[in-house]
Amino acid sequence: MSSVKVNRVMFALAVAGLIVAGLLWYWHVLNANIPCTNAGCDQVAQHPTSRLFGIPVAAYGTLFYLSFAFLCALRPSVPAEHQRLFAHLLLLWGTVGFLVSLYLTYLELFVIHAICQWCMASAIIATALFVLSLLAWRQPHLITTPSEA
């Protein structure tokens, strides 16, 4: 996959994550019943660990995906000499997202004992972003061929 395509896929995934995290944040704030095929989502949303410093975890997630998408959007315009730095930033962000998702999934499985499908979706997206950010890190320069421009 060319680096331009990797960047676009990362952008699309970050937007998907943004939607999932945004919805979870919205539902959490409204204390709404979260559409879920089991009772897991509500159990997770009502658990004390679903907030950090009084702010819903989903809010941090929303900011994370938003910033990730923003980075991906800016990347094609970054001057060549700064593209490596940008790739480092993406990898750093991708790793943070992955590790946090790993921890949250651990909380779900072993502390709350419930599975929230929306959170799982977010964890899968974060994992995919991490893998792609690794690819982007190995290929930091966006080479735009005329057909892809």
């Binding site: 409204l30 938003l66 800016l74």
Partner: peptide, 30 residues
């Protein structure tokens, strides 16, 4: 700014506006 960046930023902006709009609609009509 390259056209790709402009395109992606517009896309992101649209998603945000749409999301905020739908949330507001949902909130005030619930």
């Amino acid at each position: 700014m390259k056209s790709e960046t402009r395109f992606l930023l517009i896309l992101l902006g649209l998603v945000l506006i749409l999301g905020a709009g739908l949330a507001a609609l949902n909130y005030y009509t619930r």
